[in-house]
Every structure is written in C-alpha cells, then in structure tokens.
Design a protein around this nucleic acid. Structure first.
Length: 692
DNA sequence: TGGCAGTGTCATCAT
DNA sequence: ATATGATGACACTGC
C-alpha cells in the first residue's frame, strides 16, 4: 500500500512536471502537501518526519525516501534534494513577528498637530469608528488603557508610535479590531500556501498572539517543534537584520526590485516611533472595513519633521499627498501565526512595480508585485560560479557526486577506466611497472612487456616513463614482439634510410636467397632486419661492444669502456654519434609521450568542464523553475492581502498609489507607492555600489 | 598515389 | 667546456 501510494505520488509529480513544462501551472503542494518536503518545509520548518536518517544508506535517501542509484527517478531525486536545500535555506526568512500591522500616515491638511504627546502610544482608531461589525466589542475594548489611548488620541488628533518604538507591541490593544481580517488572511494564506496536514498546527491549541509575543507574555508556550520558526522578538533564532539581508540578497540575486530594508526598518524603529509619537496627529476616526484595521495617522504641519525622519534612510522622500503607512494588526494570532509565520514568505511583501496582472475577479485590479522581477534575462545575470562559491558549492565534488548517480549524462562517468583518464599516480604506477626495455639497437623504449627486459642492461637508462596508454602502446612496443601482431606490423619500423646502401647491405642476406633459408637463417635474417642503422654501422666498424652499452652506460663507465680499447678516431666518432642518436631517440620518445599526455589531460579537463557546465545549467533551470513558482505564490498572496485592504471610506486602496512593504520589525506596512519606488531605487543603488 | 601516423634523426637550446 | 635532456622540424616507412 505504501509503495502504491509512493508510486502514485511520484506519478503525480512527474505529471505535474510535464504540465509545468507545457506552461500549465500546477500547485503541487495542494495535492502533495505531505509528500513534497521542499515547499512543505518552507512553511513548517525542518520536520523530523523528513529528516530520518538511514546511516547505512544515507547516500540514497531523500529524507526518508530510499532511492536506488539506478532509479529512473534520480533526476527527480536530485531536483528534490536541491530544492529541499534551497527551501531549508529559505527558512531563514522568517516572519520576525507574528502579526501584520498596517499604519496609514498621511498629511493632515487641517493642520491638527499634537507634538506634545510623547507617550501617546500607538495610532489607534477610535473604536466607534470601526465599522467592522464582525469584531466583537468585548474584543475591541478588552484593554481599557488602550481604549483610553484611543480616546485620547482621538481627541488629540495625533498618532504616535509606542515609546519603545515597536509598533507591533502596542498593537495588542487594537488587534482585536482586525480579527476577521486576520482570519481571512489566514484563509488566504492557507489557500495560497497549502500547509498540508493541519494536525501539526491545531488552531485550537495554538497560542494566541499575545502568548507568542515575547514582549508581552514571555516565551511561547508552544512546543518548539511547532512554532520555533514563528517566534518573535527575542526568541527569534536569527538576527532580524540578518534575515533581512538574506532576503535582500535573494531578491538581488533574482533581480527583484526590492525596497530598502534599512529604510523601512529605520522608519519604524524606536526612534521613528518616538518622532511619530511626538509630532503626528491622529486622524479622528478611521472606520475599518473589510476586516482590515487601518491605523491612520495624519501628518499635520509636521511635514518637515516627517521628512527629516525619513531623510536619514530615504533620500528625497516625497510626502506630498497622503503618505500612508498601513499596519495590519492581527487579532487571531493563532491562525495568523501558524499560517503567516510559518510560511516565512511574508517578508517578500514589499511590492516593486505596478505592472502586474490581477487574477482576482473581485475587487480592484492589483498590480503584480513581483512582475518583471524574475525575468529570465535578469536571472541570466546570476553568476553561477559566484553562486557556487557563495553557497559552498564545490564543482568538483558536485561533479563527482553527479557522476555517481547521473546515468544519463551521455558521458563516461567512470573516468578511471578510461585510458585517457589515468591519473598521474596511476600513470606513474603503470609506467613504473612497465619497465623499459632495450631494443636490439640499444634504445630504451616504452615497452610494457617485461619479457625482454634486461634489468642489468637497463642501468643508467632512466628516461621518462610515461603512462601506458592506448595511444602509446603500439609505438613503444618491442618491435620484435609486434611482428606477430598483423595490425601492429607497421610499428616495427627500421629507419635505416639514412644509412648508405652499401653499409646497409654489408651483412644482410640477399633477397634472392630468402626463399631457401633454413629456420636458423630466417631467424638470423629477422634479427638482422631488426638491426638499426647504427648497429649496422657499428658492426661494419667492428665496434667491440654493443650499442646498448654505448647508449645507456653512464658517462663515467662509458669513458672507462672506451679507455679499455684502442679505437680509431672513426670508431670513436661513430661511437659518440651512436650514443648521441640513441639518447636523442629516447628523448624524442619521451617528448612525444609527454606531448600525448598533455593532450589527453587537456581533453579530460575539457570533458570535466563540460560536465560541470551542463550540471550548472541544469541547476540554473531548476532554480528558475523554483523561483518562478515562489514568485507566483508571493504575487498571489500579495494581491489577496492588498485586495482586502480598505481605507476609511471602505474603498480599496489603489495599487497605483500604495504598496505593501515589509518592515524591519516584522510588520507589513502600507506605504505610498512613490515611497516604495524611491526605496527600491535606493536599494538598487546600494546594491550596485556594493557590487563595485 | 596522396595522406597520415609513427618513428628516427638533426639542430638547437637549456640545464 | 662537456654531457645530456627537451623539442621543433624534417625525412622516411608502412598502411
């Protein structure tokens, strides 16, 4: 049954891949949420269910799924494994807070200013102004102090962030007002990011937002295994800034037009909060429709201050018109946390351009927040080698790993068996075992056949002993051995062309007598034919020692040998020529062998590089596919969330004027499009400068 | 018969 | 200065 299920699942995956290849987008997670670890773990984090270790078969295991090295699903195996690693890396991009808050800050043309309220806290809508009938009153006003806040602020017409600067921490007083919106967001998120088995995230048992907010209620009571990736504030295992930088780097890599993180972060940090608190007025009542709580702050005559606030991080901030900073305040922290936090994707909320398309049939047309961000051309700019370096990708290791499994590369994976791929050590080994032998003319060849080797004669004959390759085998065989191999007959060359005919014929039998030779004569004739020109010369000149000694003896012994005989000048000259030619012959052989080895090594290097290149290309395709899917999900989510936002009049926000952005404190804010664009451009410049 | 690969040899340079 | 190694160039041979 299990195997049948697995078979079915894999079939679905393959079918999905096929659909995706022909352009049909299929949300695999929806159907395979329990069998696709990569995306699942984006949301849930690494689960022990997917990390079972089979130490005895670790190599062929994909998180519990045993895969045979010869499985036809190896491609999927690698793809899934690679995606899994990517997704796990994405786990760093957690939502640092478990709430989404939106603040709307706009200039108050009426000039209502309240700069003397340093501790007025957060911008709170008047409860009476809330028109979200779905929010229970008891939840809306459960915090009397904050109710007072709201009233006071309403009177003052001022809005101010909390003293501690963490807007979200002040939000629990008004989060209830957004209960429905968050629930709906949860549903939207779940629809967009199917999480699979909900049993791991029982909504009824999940903690409330208050419980998981460390600033409010201390450590989460939720088991670490469930909400550890969702913890906020001090419980975040990773530095928020680091997360953001990671996200930005990813965006940068993907060519996404991102907005300045630091700018957003600085905007809503404590300093910014104080400034806002001190200078900005609160809009009287901000009716919230469509389940979204809009904390509206009016900019009275404090435009300059406001600008100065942003000027530190955002150049040329344009606050003309209504600058809006929306913060979505969650009420149902349980649902939202488990959903939004676990997706780890909310950080991709900042919208780049309003050039997208809208999938929704209801509500205003929303831009594609990620449109144009992941164009193939942009992704082409990805330096794969840089990526490999940054990610610790070892091309050699990867190539070898791939060689272990990749059976369809069309390349010989077992290079060690290739005669052209002998390692230097192997070559050395083989060559050392293949002793050099002397031909009858005394030259040292590259004969792997040791039958004719005379070790004693080999003294001093130490030359380059290269590997015994198929290319050199014939060339360096002992000619006497090769005579019996018809296809190697040509190897037995006797380059005596320089020899004077008279000299050559001196002791050779006449061809006319060949037919009548005895076996002994034939052998003598054969040996005679093997004699080189110098050997014939030496015989003609009656040199009293063999050419082999002439050539291979060390110079001292050679001179000693010469001194033992009374040799004429012609004999001495011939002997020296024989020695010189013999050594040069060996040197030429060595030289050619080296040349061959060099060529073969280069050939092997080219093959390796081609293999690496193809591997990187395959990885690139996988990355592009994965990124495209993620982009689509984020885009959908963005549009869903944005489409739910309503201003004080219950009208949807224009995507041409506003954009959602992810703040450094984890909040998702609604900011003017112009501001988002400026931040995006600024961030772009920063990244360019960083590259330089 | 021309092309080609293998080989030997020479000239030259480097060590 | 000599011996030797390395290598390009050339010639030759056999296929």
């Amino acid at each position: 049954m299990l195997s049948l299920k697995k078979y079915f699942t894999e079939g679905l995956i393959q079918f999905t891949i096929l659909l995706s290849l022909i352009g049909v987008r299929v949300d695999v997670d929806t159907y395979l949420n329990s069998h696709l670890p990569p995306l699942r773990e984006i949301f849930l984090g690494q689960s022990s269910a997917y990390t079972q270790t089979q130490f005895h078969n670790l190599r062929n295991t994909l998180d519990g799924y045993v895969i045979h090295p010869k499985s036809v699903d190896l491609d999927y195996y690698f793809t899934a494994r690679r995606l899994l690693n990517q997704v796990r890396a994405l786990d760093r991009f957690q939502v640092p807070t478990t709430e989404v808050s939106a603040w709307l800050v706009h200039r108050d043309s009426e000039g209502s200013v309240s700069g003397a309220q340093p501790n007025t806290g957060i911008a709170l809508e008047n409860g009476s102004g809330l028109q979200d009938g779905t929010v229970p009153d008891n939840e809306v006003r459960e915090n009397g102090a904050e109710q007072g806040f709201g009233e006071e602020l309403e009177d003052l017409g001022a809005v101010a962030p909390p003293v501690n600067g963490d807007l979200t921490k002040e939000v629990p007083g008004v989060e209830d007002q957004t209960a429905l919106s968050l629930e709906e967001c949860l549903r939207l998120l779940e629809a967009t990011f199917p999480f699979g088995e909900n049993s791991e995230f029982p909504a009824a048992d999940a903690p409330s937002l208050t419980e998981v907010l460390p600033s409010e209620s201390g450590p989460s009571t939720v088991p670490d295994g469930l909400l550890s990736p969702l913890l906020t504030g001090t419980e975040l295992p990773f530095d928020l800034e680091q997360q953001w930088q990671d996200l930005m780097s990813i965006m940068e890599t993907q060519g996404m037009e991102v907005n300045s993180t630091a700018a957003a972060g600085t905007l809503y940090d404590s300093t910014g909060g104080d400034i806002l608190n001190a200078n900005y007025s609160l809009a009287p009542s901000t009716p919230i429709n469509q389940n979204v709580s809009l904390h509206q702050a009016s900019l009275g005559s404090c435009t300059q201050d406001f600008a100065s606030l942003f000027s530190s991080e955002m150049e040329s901030l344009s606050v003309a018109g209504s600058s809006a900073l929306l913060q979505l305040v969650p009420d149902n922290s349980t649902g939202f946390n488990t959903t939004f936090g676990s997706t780890n994707l909310s950080g991709i909320f900042f919208p780049p351009q309003l050039n997208g398309t809208v999938n929704e049939t209801s509500g205003p047309e929303l831009p594609d927040p990620l449109g144009g961000l992941l164009d193939e051309a942009m992704l082409d700019e990805i330096s794969l080698m840089d990526l490999a370096t940054e990610e610790g990708f070892n091309p050699v290791q990867a190539s070898r790993l791939e060689e272990e499994f990749d059976s369809d590369s069309g390349l010989s994976l077992d290079s060690s068996h290739s005669p052209a791929s002998l390692s230097s050590s192997e070559a050395s080994s083989s060559s050392s075992s293949a002793s050099s032998s002397f031909s009858e003319e005394g030259a040292v060849g590259y004969n792997s056949d040791s039958e004719n080797v005379d070790v004693e004669d080999a003294e001093g004959a130490v030359g380059y002993q290269p590997e015994y390759s198929k290319f050199c085998r014939m060339s360096y065989q002992n000619p006497s051995q090769l005579q019996y191999l018809p296809y190697l007959e040509h190897v037995g060359h006797n380059h005596t062309y320089n020899m004077a005919p008279r000299t050559l014929d001196t002791d050779e039998p006449q061809p006319a007598t060949m037919g009548k030779k005895s076996a002994k004569d034939k052998q003598a004739d054969f040996l005679d034919k093997q004699m080189s020109r110098d050997e014939h010369r030496a015989r003609a000149m009656k040199i009293p020692f063999p050419n082999e000694k002439i050539i291979n003896l060390p110079v001292e012994e050679f001179n000693e040998l010469l001194s033992k005989y009374q040799l004429s000048e012609a004999q001495l000259s011939l002997i020296r020529d024989i020695r010189r030619r013999g050594k040069n012959k060996m040197a030429a052989q060595n030289c050619r062998k080296r040349k061959l080895d060099t060529i073969l090594n280069l050939e092997r290097d080219v093959e390796d590089l081609q293999r690496d290149k193809s591997k990187l290309l395959r990885e690139k395709v996988e990355f592009l596919r994965s990124i495209r899917q993620m982009k689509q999900k984020v885009q959908n989510l963005y549009q869903e969330v944005f489409g739910r936002l309503r201003d004080e009049n219950g009208q949807p926000y224009s995507p041409n004027q506003y954009a959602l952005q992810y703040a450094s404190n984890g909040s998702v804010i609604l900011i003017p499009r112009s501001l988002a664009d400026q931040q995006g451009r600024r961030q772009e410049r920063k990244q360019k400068d960083r590259r330089k």
